[in-house]
Simulated scan of single mutants.
Amino acid sequence: MRVVIADDAVLLREGLIRLVEENGHTVVAAVGDGPSLVAAIIEHRPDVSIVDVRMPPSHTDEGLRAAVEARKKVPGSPVLVLSQYVEVDYADDLLADRAGAMGYLLKDRVSEVAEFLDALHRVAGGGTVLDPEVVGQLLVRRRRDDPLRNLTPREREVLGLMAEGGSNTAIARKMVVTEGAVEKHVRNIFTKLDLPPDEEQHRRVLAVLTYLQS
């Protein structure tokens, strides 16, 4: 494999170079900042890039932001992120294009060289490798951001039938409840989705759009 390595810590970068090359691969570029990573990926089109999250100038999330930018310029470019912490926003952005070929591992949890190399191969092959802690935090984020999180199961069912085009009468018939019960569920849905009466927009349509987007 042809590999790009991005890490501003010289000792770690040199260690990764040695590890990669001793296992039969070629490091085509080794850089220490985000812009250089983007440029290296555009120039070399590597089989996979190993990217540290924290790089100059702020040593916060430049590596992740650079990886996201690089994948926009070179769609699907395989990236394996190594980090000491989970940066949920940019992990989400890396996953958002659904192109695969990405990994996010926490440094402290990579306990074996063979495990790391296996992850590298899987990402280069188009797979997705995520540390369990990353998965956990992404799930928490999704639950927190879900606009339907406050709906009861019954209200979700009503909203789903609304999305299928059902009127209150049709929904009541399908759920074997009274039309009044459905009307109550619909009012609750509008309240929980923060859709007050509005002469300009149809609340039922807005509720369905929210359901579809979630």
Rank of each mutant, 00 (worst) to 15 (best):
1 M>R: 14
2 R>H: 13
5 I>E: 11
5 I>S: 13
8 D>F: 08
10 V>K: 11
11 L>M: 14
14 E>M: 11
17 I>Q: 08
18 R>V: 06
19 L>A: 04
24 G>Y: 13
25 H>E: 08
26 T>Y: 10
27 V>L: 11
28 V>T: 15
30 A>K: 10
37 L>H: 14
40 A>S: 15
41 I>E: 09
44 H>Y: 03
47 D>Q: 09
48 V>I: 06
48 V>K: 01
51 V>Y: 05
59 H>G: 03
60 T>S: 10
60 T>D: 11
62 E>I: 02
63 G>W: 00
63 G>S: 03
64 L>Q: 04
64 L>H: 05
66 A>E: 09
67 A>D: 02
70 A>Y: 08
71 R>A: 08
73 K>Y: 03
78 P>E: 06
80 L>M: 04
80 L>K: 02
83 S>A: 09
87 E>H: 13
90 Y>T: 08
93 D>N: 09
95 L>Q: 11
99 A>N: 04
100 G>F: 01
103 G>A: 01
106 L>Q: 02
107 K>S: 00
108 D>G: 14
111 S>D: 08
115 E>F: 09
116 F>R: 00
123 V>D: 01
126 G>E: 02
126 G>S: 02
126 G>D: 03
127 G>T: 04
128 T>I: 13
129 V>C: 01
130 L>F: 03
130 L>S: 01
133 E>F: 00
133 E>L: 07
134 V>I: 08
137 Q>W: 07
138 L>S: 11
139 L>C: 09
139 L>I: 13
140 V>A: 13
142 R>I: 03
145 D>M: 12
146 D>I: 06
150 N>P: 00
150 N>W: 13
151 L>N: 04
152 T>R: 09
152 T>E: 10
153 P>Y: 08
153 P>L: 07
156 R>H: 13
157 E>S: 07
157 E>I: 00
160 G>F: 01
160 G>L: 04
160 G>N: 09
161 L>C: 02
163 A>S: 14
164 E>P: 05
165 G>N: 07
166 G>H: 05
166 G>W: 00
167 S>P: 06
169 T>N: 00
169 T>P: 00
173 R>S: 12
175 M>W: 04
177 V>I: 15
178 T>E: 05
178 T>P: 05
180 G>I: 15
181 A>C: 11
183 E>T: 14
183 E>R: 14
184 K>T: 15
184 K>Y: 14
185 H>T: 06
190 F>P: 07
193 L>W: 10
197 P>L: 05
198 D>W: 12
199 E>Q: 12
200 E>T: 12
201 Q>E: 10
206 L>G: 00
207 A>V: 06
209 L>R: 12
212 L>R: 14
214 S>W: 08
